[in-house]
Amino acid sequence: MLRHFPFRAMASPCELLLHGEDADQVEAAARAATAEVVRIEHKYSRYREDSVTAAINAGAGDGSGVAVDDETAALLDYAATAWAQSDGLFDISSGVLREVWDFRSGRVPKAHDVARVLERVGWHRIGWKDGRIRLGPGMQIDFGGYGKEYAADRAAACCRAHGIDSGLVDLGGDIAIVGPHPDDTPWRVGIRDPEQVYGAVARVELGRGGLATSGDYQRCMVVDGRRYAHILDPKTGWPIAGLRSVSVIANSCLIAGTAATIAMLKGDDGAAWLDALGLPNLRIDAKGQVSGTLSRRYGDPPSSRSPGLSAISTSPGSTTT
């Protein structure tokens, strides 16, 4: 029997879809998975004063640094790898650029203001060694770029640890598979454009691993006829034009999300980089054109879509959410 457990976390609508005959077991798994997501949110939220992120940021400028636990260390190692593999584009210290980029204001910052903030951006300026992280004065990090995807993988692992081997975790469109349906058929997941209520941009089958989407969700800022995307290049401090949205399938939601984020940050080169990576993907460019391996294989005929995707999981045969 398939049970739905909707909840809200990480500023997103979330849902667990779990198969199981034993209602108590399924509920115990759902409780544990939900608690795990909430635990990760609390631990890494940059808005909470008692979070690890806040503690690390509070230590900025302190030469001795902040000691972190194993889980945080592994996440920082992961950030270091992603930074290196993306030629410095995936950068967990780029958040301070928001000090000068206020997309609601409709104002483009002055170049010298951007340059000044940029001095406090860059993983290469951060000391990360022997379990201690040292931030320069005024620097900040946050785990927003991959925390949700990590939480999805952890929640799926939690379900499996509770003996549930068939299910799906959906954290606001970032999906981690617990395991395929009891008859071993994969989950059919629609990559859907929320503004186009009819139909999915693409429908994909997932028996394991994860799917994640990175996108310029809000409308871009247009100033004097020029479009400014929300994606900021941590190396220049300026918006990157290119893809509007990227969805990727990988062995884990975390890797899918990182690949999608890096592809977005690569701008016009993102599509080619994704193809080279060899992971199934779907992207929408600035003109709304849909491309990528998933659009060819499973997609409805591509048409002009507005940006912003959410993934909706459905059981086989069903077409409703």
């Binding site: 992961y78 952890r154 062995n251 975390l254 080279a276």
Partner: peptide, 26 residues
């Protein structure tokens, strides 16, 4: 360039495997 991208995937996978509970993914 294709190769360096596949190296990127290997590196990310190795690093993600180090995270608690994600060891199985690679």
């Amino acid at each position: 360039s294709r190769l360096s991208a596949s190296d990127a995937l290997n590196a990310l996978t190795a690093s993600a495997m180090a995270l608690p509970g994600l060891a199985g993914i690679a």
